[in-house]
Design a binder for these strands. Structure first.
Length: 542
DNA sequence: CGACGGGACGC
DNA sequence: CGACGGGACGC
């Protein structure tokens, strides 16, 4: 079967590594509307040479099929709806110097699709616009035959969220035919992807106290989200094996728990801190497994030890096990039925204390209580640690989940955080830079005249949501006001862009409904032109 | 017809 | 080249 192996070249552009992209996207949870001026990254290395609307005529005359041509490309989003706001740090992030922990956890929620019936002559630029209509493209990889180097007629398209991927599947699978192809494309999850994504809301926990009850465990994890289930692994004698699983209602919560507790929380009577990581997929359970390396490269590996600040057994640590004095916070803070798609998340909650009850992310109550609610050990680590790799970024991450209306407060805490973590190593500092500088500044501050009650935020997994600082409403869909606001911002930043085409890329919904090849092709064609226009506008503005 | 990457820790 | 405890999915 070796002859059939495929390969694809890695991009020479270090900045285009998915990790680098992710570090930008995940670190930019703060309003992303005003970041267009950083998007120059996109065409920095890639001009439009292969990009041409005529690619969609049946002849595909461009020459992108030379075997050695780079066909691998990671995208920085540059349309506003796409997520992954570019804060411009991508190109500066060295491919090698990066921590795998945190970012990869975020990456884990990216959704990779496998697309076949792609013309062998198609370039990334032919493929991307088609898919970009449905969401933020993190990566496109054209598969090639390992030996000949020729394209094999399929590709991976990676979206930053599952939602986007689903949209693309619904709209494009068997619905779109590339010019020159006899059959429509198939668009489906790459092998193992579904399984991988399905369990991101569940964490494995090691170093549980063997006497711990479900309830006790639930209380420890509840501050980070709605705990739907706690399972303690037991032997045949019903004795706890000291590990278990905690399932949340949302993968974001799982991530929050990982960030906060892994290596940071030592249970009473234990001498080792928790291991908290995404659960491995359950049993292979039969067929449908292809050379499934789905979990390599993220933090699922057996010895992927997170660069957590491990508690060294300090003399003064007799407190171990008594951390989290009154730990657990009322579960009522969490909506029991979070809806990824729906209307306002917490619509059914009492409006009286909006700042608490209607937070976009209920897992964390409010910034002022955030520190005090952190497990004591974590706080200690933050304070004492000169090499708090994990803790500080974690804090930052959590901050992003917090009430956006508390900007000043947040900023204060931010500066504390970055101050403490100063004495750390370079790579991290970089990551932090993108974290702590850009996102903290609200769009409103950058563009003085423009204001919008809505702001855009990103969950750790890439989901975007919108928060209104006046009504305290949050919602998943982009409010019209915010879309307009975004456009205004962009006009201001790029005065050279006359007719800004940045509205939500294309009418996605009508797209899905129509789902007619002709239309799709037409719109794709149009999209090409738009892209070109946008690109030239962007270059002009840099 | 189906076809499913490559590199990836950090000192 | 050391890092890792090993345990991994109910009803």
């Amino acid at each position: 079967m070796n002859g059939g192996e495929r390969f694809c070249e890695q991009s020479e552009c270090g900045a285009s590594h998915p990790a680098a992209v992710a570090s930008s996207s995940s670190s930019s949870s703060w309003p992303s509307g005003g970041d267009v001026n950083h998007n120059y990254y996109y065409h920095h290395h890639h001009h439009d040479q292969n990009f041409n609307a005529s690619n969609f005529n049946p002849h595909y005359h461009h020459n992108s099929n030379r075997p050695d041509h780079q066909q691998h490309f990671d995208f920085q989003s540059f349309h506003s709806n796409g997520g992954a706001p570019a804060y411009g740090f991508t190109h500066a992030l060295p491919l090698s110097g990066r921590k795998r922990d945190h970012m990869d956890s975020v990456i884990a929620s990216h959704a990779k699709l496998y697309v076949s019936q792609v013309p062998r002559t198609a370039s990334v630029d032919d493929i991307r616009p088609l898919f970009e209509q449905f969401g933020n493209i993190v990566e496109v990889v054209i598969l090639k035959d390992k030996r000949t180097g020729y394209q094999q007629g399929s590709c991976f398209v990676k979206y930053s969220t599952i939602d986007e991927a689903e949209k693309a599947i619904r709209a494009l699978n068997t619905q779109f035919t590339f010019p020159g192809e006899m059959v429509p494309i198939t668009v489906k999850y790459a092998d193992g992807e579904r399984e991988r994504l399905a369990i991101l809301d569940k964490v494995f926990v090691g170093y549980l106290n063997r006497d711990a009850t479900k309830k006790e465990i639930e209380e420890i994890f509840s501050p980070y989200g709605v705990v739907e289930d706690v399972y303690i692994v037991r032997d045949e004698m019903k004795q706890s094996r000291g590990c278990g699983f905690v399932k949340f209602s949302h993968k974001d919560m799982a991530l929050a728990a990982i960030k906060a507790l892994n290596g940071m929380y030592t249970m009473r009577g234990c001498d080792q801190p928790f291991i908290v990581r995404f659960a491995d997929p359950k049993k292979p359970k039969g067929g449908e497994t292809r050379g499934n390396t789905s979990f390599s490269g993220t933090n699922f590996g057996p010895h992927m030890q997170e660069p957590v600040v491990r508690r060294t057994t300090n003399p003064g640590d007799s407190m171990v096990g008594h951390n989290l004095p009154n730990a657990p916070y009322p579960l009522q803070h969490f909506s029991s039925t979070p809806q990824p798609q729906g209307v306002s998340l917490y619509a059914n909650q009492e409006p009286q204390t909006p700042n608490i009850n209607q937070q976009p992310f209920p897992s964390l109550q409010n910034p002022s209580s955030q520190l005090s609610q952190m497990p004591l050990q974590q706080t200690q680590n933050l304070q004492r640690s000169a090499q708090s790799f994990q803790a500080v970024p974690e804090m930052q991450k959590q901050m992003h989940l917090i009430q956006p209306s508390m900007e000043s407060l947040e900023q204060q805490q931010w500066s504390q955080g970055s101050g403490q973590q100063t004495p750390q190593t370079g790579n991290n500092t970089q990551a932090v830079a993108s974290n702590s500088v850009s996102p903290v500044v609200p769009v409103n501050a950058q563009v003085s005249e423009l204001e919008c009650d809505w702001s855009e935020h990103t969950c750790p997994d890439g989901y975007k949501y919108y928060y209104n600082c006046v009504t305290c409403e949050s919602r998943w869909e982009k409010p019209e006001e915010f879309a307009i606001f975004e456009q205004q911002v962009k006009k201001q930043i790029q005065p050279h862009n006359p007719s800004n085409q940045f509205q939500s890329p294309l009418p996605v919904h009508s797209m899905e409904q129509v789902a007619q090849t002709q239309q799709v092709q037409h719109q794709t064609h149009v999209f090409h032109q738009k892209l070109q226009h946008q690109q030239s506008s962007l270059s002009a503005s840099v």
